[in-house]
């Protein structure tokens, strides 16, 4: 049975709920601060998916489609709760002197991502940093760096040129790098510095 057909009527959608709740809950637990929040996010994601199921064209897997909805629900919840404004990306870009040399000094090479993510503070910092990117920048990070699609795919989805997509992605990544500096502040894999 095709993906769109599985979503088409309530009985089949119930099967989808039973099949994917565990996977979505595992992700929601990584992205929320409590079990109750995780449950709320999964419930909201399925409800949104059900209401917008006619938009699912079957190009992506059902699991990927549901995952994207869940991540957006979780990030939206972070934004609403924090009441913090979106980041001003201009202030988070690298600076250079008149010779084109970097102005700000860099810290030591960070530990491996997996090691850093063992700390709840790091997971919160990463989630919050992405949540507070301006919408267009957050979208391109989700498409390129989280879903692993190409810049051409991102440009198509966002209805912008590939050139604009490249600029937007770079500004978002540079801002995330700056926002995550405190979380990466520990000395780690020195090999990165030798590459």
């Amino acid at each position: 049975m095709t993906g769109p057909a599985r979503l088409s009527d309530p009985k089949r959608f119930a099967e989808v709920v039973k099949q994917y709740t565990g996977r979505l809950l595992a992700t929601a637990r990584r992205l929320t601060d409590s079990e109750a929040d995780a449950h709320d996010c999964v419930q909201e994601a399925f409800l949104l998916a059900y209401r917008s199921r006619s938009q699912f064209e079957g190009r992506a897997k059902i699991s990927s489609w549901l995952h994207r909805i869940l991540v957006n629900v979780a990030l939206e919840r972070v934004r609403k709760r924090s009441r913090r404004p979106e980041e001003a990306l201009e202030d988070l870009q690298p600076t250079f002197d008149e010779r084109g040399c970097r102005v700000e000094s860099q810290g030591p090479a960070p530990a491996e991502a997996q090691v850093l993510l063992e700390r709840a503070e790091t997971r919160t910092a990463v989630r919050d940093a992405i949540a507070h990117l301006p919408e267009g920048h957050r979208e391109i990070v989700l498409i390129r760096d989280i879903e692993g699609k190409t810049t051409a795919d991102a440009a198509r989805e966002l209805s912008i040129t590939q050139s604009a997509a490249r600029v937007r992605l770079h500004r978002a990544r540079a801002a995330l790098k700056r926002l995550l500096e405190p979380a990466m502040g520990v000395a780690g894999d020195k090999e990165d510095n030798k590459r």
């Binding site: 992700t27 991502a113 850093l116 993510l117 989280i146």
Partner: peptide, 12 residues
């Protein structure tokens, strides 16, 4: 590393 952190935390 910032890219990897985002990917590892949020990817499917």
């Amino acid at each position: 590393r910032a890219i990897e952190l985002g990917h590892k935390l949020l990817a499917e």
